[in-house]
Amino acid sequence: MASISIGKAWEESVAFVARESTLLLPVALLFVALPGLILQEMVPPELTQWMLTQTKTTLPPVGPSFWAALFITVVVIWFGSLTLFALALRPGISVGEALRLSIARLPVLLGTALLLIGLFSAVVLVGAILVAILTLVSPAVAAFLVGVLTLAFGVALIFASVRLVLLNPVVIDGTLGVRDSIRHAWALTRGHVWRLLAFLLLLTIVSAIVSTAAQTVIGALAGLVAGPDAARLTGSIAGALVSTVVQLYMLVMIARLYRQAEA
């Protein structure tokens, strides 16, 4: 098991982004920031209200076009992340070469996602069947079990996310298939769960704080000049740009941690 250093990864990432920003930023803006911003503008108002209040137990009716757009956006962002990982892991590679490599390896990443979603869906289905059976016997026990299973599923999801945080670099840097990529990414993070969890939590909190601050401040300034509609749009753009920059550093750091773990 190789040792990893978050501090070393951060120093290398800062130097790399400063040196290669002209290659990295256009890719990040085009394939990460722009798709997310377009999707944000496509979210139906009733869905936005539900996410803010969650007063209803079920989702409001949303047309299939939104779910299709959501799927396309996720695929485009994954493609962009693979391209950024290719640029970070292979010094000297051109953007065109990174894009072609990402296109070639994107089916493997999609396959890993489908496999993992299938596994978690199977676990949820088994839990739902068990709860349904217990409900017939004892509703109180079933309700308690729902709480326990929900907590366990959340913990398992976080644990799996941390153990597979190096999956994208594994996919883009090698020639492994779907299952072997998952196994290799899982093996690389063995013994580093707590350190990687702290790293991911810290960057997630920082991203949320700075993007919200940028959205609020820039939106407020735009609102003073051009009104509420301009405030909302300008704030969304500012938040997306700042969030993308933070994500760029995070992706480069993950690439550096992957190199350390591979050693």
Rank of each mutant, 00 (worst) to 15 (best):
G147A: 15
F71H: 08
V165Y: 12
R259S: 15
H192Q: 12
W194R: 07
S121M: 15
I133S: 09
L130G: 06
S5L: 02
L47E: 13
E97M: 00
T48E: 13
H184E: 14
P35L: 07
A214S: 12
V123R: 14
R179Y: 09
L196I: 10
E11D: 13
I6L: 13
L201Y: 10
H192L: 04
I4S: 11
T58M: 15
Y258E: 12
V95T: 02
A128S: 15
L257F: 04
A231G: 02
S161Y: 05
L157F: 02
F16K: 12
P44M: 05
L23T: 02
T83D: 03
L157D: 05
G154L: 09
V74R: 01
V246R: 11
P139Y: 13
A226Q: 05
I158R: 03
I158A: 05
L145F: 05
F31G: 07
G36L: 04
L89T: 01
I103D: 00
A18Q: 12
A230V: 02
T58C: 04
P64M: 08
W194T: 11
V170H: 10
F66D: 13
A113I: 05
G147I: 08
V206P: 01
R256W: 05
V252G: 00
A230N: 03
P45F: 08
S121W: 15
T83Q: 07
L89P: 06
P228S: 10
L251M: 11
L59I: 10
L30F: 12
Q247R: 12
T175V: 04
I254E: 09
R190E: 13
L109R: 12
F79S: 07
F159P: 03
V217D: 10
H184D: 15
L87P: 02
